[in-house]
Structures are given as structure tokens and as C-alpha cells.
Simulated assay, not measured.
Amino acid sequence: MDKMAGRMKVRKYRFFKDADTEGLLESKMGIGTLAVAGEFVPVPDLSTVKWKKGADINVRMTQDMETCLISSSALISPGLFLLADCNNNCVKLVDVSSRTVTARLQLPGQPWDVCVLADDQAAVTFAINSMIQLLSTKGGQLTRGKEIKVSPKCRGITSYNNRLYVFYKSNPRIEVMTLDGHIISAFHKDDGRQFFQAPYYLTVSASILPTLYVSDSDTNTGLQLSLDGKVLREYRDKQLIRPESVVEVGPGQIIVCGRDIHNVLLLSERYGKMTEILGQKDGLTKPFFVTFCPHTRAIVVGMRDNNSLNVFNAK
């Protein structure tokens, strides 16, 4: 007790305000303001929609030396799509309303997949060049930006929350990286089981709980994964043969094209089932990519080694 009494000291303290915080509290804007960023467009249940084939879009240009192979597409703005033309080493902007190619940009290799980023940016993968090319799409013009060096055989790419999710066919895996190319994590197994055999495409479903959807063409499978690489659900169906492009169209709705059975399927997250919404009867032959525009309510399908895109409008 004597020792404790000697150690007891009473100290006086004074509080000093943080000038930045004090200024923030005095601000009339508070922590920020809200501005209109765009119009929310509700997406109907695509399994109940009837489709009518519209006029095809010819995407071959005078600079193209080969028949077009549009390996992927991404929606830039209402009715405007960014295309990767693998055979002609370029990307193109296509206006679905006017059915014309509005811009073209030559690239240093064969592009495979494209995804849209914030601030009028996009990203393109190159499997042979082992890189990701960032692009500007501002003002309807295409210009090259920064290059990100990555491992060989990178294929699919998607983005979520300022992160890139990149698919690799060699040593099949998904890498999560920053927009500067810094690898945050990678996954290819769950409980010791290899996920993929021949992965090509992936997309993010931004539902209440965001998840990844990937297509594996060798196993005829669609996989739903958590963002940290846990398998949540496997989609298999006799109507799904050689799945290629997989795209989110709305909350809980994913479309994927089956190349070797010539169809486009709708994957329902809620019911865990697949429904064919387009097929051979609609003129599809080896569909390679599919994209949906909720503003124009149109599905655009590109077929392997074909200069034309098929457009289907909701009735």
C-alpha cells in the first residue's frame, strides 16, 4: 500500500480540437452531396420476354484485313457497345440504334475480353501479349492508356469496387488486382478441389451479396463464386454446351451463350435453373459473346468468325 501511494499521480489533460474536423462540422455540405449519376432502368424477368430479331449490324470496316471475330463486348452507355475484334487486333464502338461502328482503335495484339471501368475507362486483356490495356472511351473516342503487365494466357476480365478480376487459362485461376496491377489475392481451388479446366469469361453479379459467375467450356459448367473464391453453386444443363461469354443483365439474372449448342441461356440466381431464351431457331450459329442493354431492351449476339452482329429486341 505504501508503494502504491507513492506511484499514484494526478495528471491534468487539455483537449485540442482538430482543425480539419472542426471545419468539416461547420461546412454546409457536411460530408458530401448527392448528384444524379444516371437513370435507374428496371430489368424485366428475361425468361418471360419474347424476342424479335432486328436488322443485323455489319461491324467489318475498311481497315480490317480478316473476317471479324468479336470475342467480347461491354455496354458503355445506352445503346453503345465496346467490342473486342480478336482477328483484326482492334476494339470498336458500335451504336445499336444507328447500327454503325462509330470508332475503331488499332491495338498491339489480339484483344480477348473487355470490361467497363469508372470515369469513361475500359480494360482489355491480351492472352498472347501478357498484358491488360487500359482505354479511354470519353466522348465516344477510343484512346490507349496505361499498360498492366500480367502473367501469360490471361483471358476473361471484369471489375467491381475498383478491383480487377482476371481469368487465366494457363494454370487456371482468378487473380484479384488493383487498377495499378498489384495482385491482392488469387484463387483456383476450394477445399483442395480445382475449380476450372478451360476458363474464358467471368462477370460480377452485383446483387445484395455480390458474387462472381464464370464459364468453364471444357466441363460445360457455370460456377457461382464468392468474391473470396468459395464455390456457392454449380450450373449444369443439357442445354449448356461449351459456354463462352457470361454477362450480368440485372439483379440475379445472368446470360451465357452455349457455343456448340447454338443458344443463349438465362441463369436464374433465385431459382438456380437455366432457361433457353434464344437458339438455333432464331438464327444463332456458334454464338461467342452476348450483351444486353436495359435501356433499349436489346440483346446483341456475336457469332464466331462473322462480320455481323445479331440484334434481338423485346416485343
Results as ranks from 00 to 15, higher is better:
Ala55Arg: 11
Ser47Met: 08
Val214Glu: 04
Tyr201Met: 00
Leu209Trp: 03
Leu202Glu: 00
Val256Ser: 05
Leu134Ile: 11
Lys153Asp: 06
Val231Cys: 11
Glu66Trp: 09
Val214Phe: 00
Lys315Ala: 11
Leu225Trp: 14
Glu22Met: 12
Ser73Cys: 04
Val114Gln: 05
Leu75Glu: 00
Ile76Ala: 04
Ser151Phe: 03
Leu107Lys: 02
Ala198Thr: 10
Cys115Ile: 01
Gly222Met: 14
Lys3Cys: 01
Lys281Tyr: 06
Pro243Ala: 06
Pro287Asp: 12
Ile277Ala: 10
Val49Pro: 04
Thr296Gly: 05
Thr178Val: 01
Gln239Asn: 12
Phe289Pro: 03
Leu107Ile: 01
Ile76Phe: 01
Lys28Asp: 10
Cys154Glu: 04
Pro199Asn: 00
Trp112Pro: 00
Ala55Phe: 01
Gly279Tyr: 05
Thr143Ser: 15
Glu39Asp: 14
Trp112Gly: 07
Ile277Cys: 07
Gln224Leu: 06
Ser72Met: 02
Ile255Asp: 04
Leu69Met: 09
Val214Tyr: 02
Ala186Glu: 14
Lys28Asn: 02
Gly139Tyr: 09
Arg14His: 14
Val246His: 06
Lys230His: 13
Ile76Trp: 01
Ala103Tyr: 07
Val264Met: 12
Asn307Lys: 12
Ala123Cys: 13
Ser207Val: 09
Asn313Ile: 02
Tyr168Arg: 09
Lys286Leu: 15
Glu147Lys: 13
Gly140Ala: 06
Asp113Lys: 12
Asp119Val: 04
Val231Phe: 02
Gln121Cys: 10
Leu232Phe: 02
Asp95Ser: 15
Ile184Met: 08
Lys53His: 01
Gly156Leu: 02
Cys86Asn: 09
Tyr160Val: 06
Ser136Gly: 15
Ile299Pro: 02
Asn310Phe: 13
Asn313Tyr: 07
Gln239Glu: 10
Asn58Phe: 12
Ala118Leu: 09
Met61Gly: 12
Asp45Ala: 10
Thr285Arg: 14
Asn171Pro: 02
Lys50Arg: 07
Asn162Lys: 14
Arg304Tyr: 14
Ala74Lys: 03
Val247Lys: 11
Phe16Met: 13
Val150Glu: 03
Phe289Lys: 03
Gln194Asn: 10
Leu82Glu: 01
Asp191Cys: 05
Val49Lys: 08
Ile132Gly: 11
Ser215Thr: 06
Arg297Val: 00
Pro172Asn: 11
Ser98His: 02
Leu82Met: 11
Lys169Glu: 13
Asp260His: 09
Lys238Ala: 15
Ile299Asn: 01
Gln194Ile: 08
Ile174Val: 13
Ile132Arg: 07
Pro199Val: 07
Val10His: 08
Asp218Ile: 12
Thr143Glu: 15
Ile148His: 07
Phe167Thr: 15
Met274Asn: 04
Leu232Ile: 08
Gln110Ser: 15
Ala84Ser: 10
Leu25Cys: 06
Met29Glu: 00
Ile174Cys: 06
Cys115Trp: 04
Ser72Val: 02
Asn310Gln: 14
Asp56Leu: 10
Ile76Glu: 04
Ile157Arg: 08
Phe292Lys: 09
Lys50Pro: 00
Arg155Ser: 01
Asn162Thr: 10
Gly302Met: 06
Gln253Ala: 07
Arg7His: 03
Ile254Ala: 06
His262Arg: 07
Gln121Thr: 04
Asp282Ala: 14
Arg155Gly: 01
Val41Tyr: 00
Lys12His: 08
Trp51Ala: 05
Asn307Asp: 15
Asp218Lys: 15
Asp20Ala: 13
Asn307Cys: 13
Ile148Arg: 08
